[in-house]
């Protein structure tokens, strides 16, 4: 199997792909980016916290016009994963309002973004309908 890298460093690959957040050890606020400090309590200690791979669609849009180089249409969404909000696309279902709805239950799914010159696959994530 080709070597794989995640699209972003907060995506953990393997048998059980999932997202991991930087959780503030003093207030519990969760962030996905590299942190200087906590935006909520200004603390500087963080620990890694696994994010639930299932959740529900809290908000979505179906983007028909995007920047050059981005295939459309696609569904951009905010997923509430057991209390942690995650930004991601809704995938593996048609991008139309008949197939995507507010409150819809979804689960994390990975897909191949592409392969680089060394043959390494980049793996991205999205959320697909649970049923």
């Amino acid at each position: 199997m080709a070597q794989q890298v995640p699209l972003v460093d907060y995506l953990v690959l393997g048998d059980d792909p999932h997202l991991v957040a930087n959780e503030c050890t003093s207030c519990g606020a969760r962030f996905f980016d590299r942190r200087n400090a906590c935006a909520s309590c200004f603390g500087t200690e963080f620990k890694k916290a696994d994010v639930s791979p299932t959740g529900e669609v809290r908000a979505f849009t179906i983007v028909s016009f995007a920047a050059p180089g981005i295939p459309v249409p696609f569904v951009a969404a905010v997923i509430d994963c057991d209390g942690t909000s995650v930004r991601g696309n809704v995938i593996n279902t048609p991008a139309d309002p008949e197939h995507v709805s507010l409150g819809m239950k979804v689960k994390l799914a990975t897909y191949e973004v592409g392969t680089d010159a060394a043959g390494t696959e980049a793996i991205g994530f999205g959320f697909e309908p649970l049923n």
Partner: peptide, 14 residues
């Protein structure tokens, strides 16, 4: 800040 190996606009939301 996300250690992204490729562009994320359109791949991780908009």
């Amino acid at each position: 800040r996300y250690g992204a190996v490729a562009g994320v606009d359109g791949r991780i939301g908009t």
